[in-house]
Design a protein around this nucleic acid. Sequence first.
DNA 1: AGCGTCATGTCCGAATTCCGCCAGCCCCGG
DNA 2: CCGGGGCTGGCGGAATTCGGACATGACGCT
Lengths: 180, 180
Amino acid sequence: MSVTTVYATLDSPLGELLVVGEESATAPGGVALRSLSVPGQKGGAVVRDGWRRAPELFGEAAAQLKAYFAGELTRFELAYADGGGTEFQRRVWGAVEGVPYGETTSYGKVAESIGASRAAVRAVGTAIGRNPLLVVRPCHRIVGAGGALVGYAGGLERKRLLLELELHAHGAHGTRGPVR
Amino acid sequence: MSVTTVYATLDSPLGELLVVGEESATAPGGVALRSLSVPGQKGGAVVRDGWRRAPELFGEAAAQLKAYFAGELTRFELAYADGGGTEFQRRVWGAVEGVPYGETTSYGKVAESIGASRAAVRAVGTAIGRNPLLVVRPCHRIVGAGGALVGYAGGLERKRLLLELELHAHGAHGTRGPVR
DNA sequence: AGCGTCATGTCCGAATTCCGCCAGCCCCGG
DNA sequence: CCGGGGCTGGCGGAATTCGGACATGACGCT
């Protein structure tokens, strides 16, 4: 039952990413990703006493992130820690993970896809806003019904940057809606 | 609106007194007494960051305290800060201040004197226990109905010491009840 | 076209309620 | 005379409740 929290930082086009993971005593060497955030993020993680800085442990995560930002990786394959969250949030996050690289969808579509009331769109918005895994779980692919970028925990500018990256990376990905 | 908290310590038969005061920006040089406590006191004051040690500012207070412990002063005349407290506590403390040097009274009498129900004696006890001005506001002169020393934030031994001091100081003060 | 309105799940802070303590005292049975 | 239980009022902290604010979107007005 004893888990150690480890963390590392990584430079990226979005700024210095803070990567936080859990090292379980039962599975030594294996680190499960718990959180990924950018500087100044609204509900971003904050390094606490007792956390161990361990850059080397995130080799795989770092490699995939670098490949992603280079436009050479369209799908993350990492070990995730149990991210907690409510039943509702888990369903929303699951739907978000189903949005493919380079495409976008709307908050309303997400609400619909999890079988929630159409009036639950705002709840969907808040749930997405609490996504602990920025970039990796592609909450940046959820835009307004009209295609407008509505909000992003890391700031709208970063959201636009990610979407443009995904659009121009291979140049052959379609979109479901205009990105303005 | 800016008040500075200042403090000083003073040796006494009770141990090292901690004297805390407020220095108002509007009345420079004047220090109002806020708290007086002894080491190990239950709800005693604790020196915090931002407090300024200023022994020289309590010249008058120190002089009166020394005179009191020498048995040569029976009534303090000092500037007090607004001690806060609830309506009820203020009334109780006011009644306590009315008990003359060398005399004692009971919790029940105090309750009666402030027009409180006789069943409020326990509330009176707690209120007296929160007196922020030990010694100066003579909560040590309140004893049980039977004359027994019941409790004291600074410890019963100190209460006894104060009462004996007041009894034997000039030797000519009457008491309302036996002190055991 | 533009604006106000409302619906939903969640979190967070403020407000409120509730509970248990206590520096007493009286009464009652030994 | 002694010891213990029960009653009382005020207070502080814990627990609980409550009201807003959101990463939206459809509808009905003007």
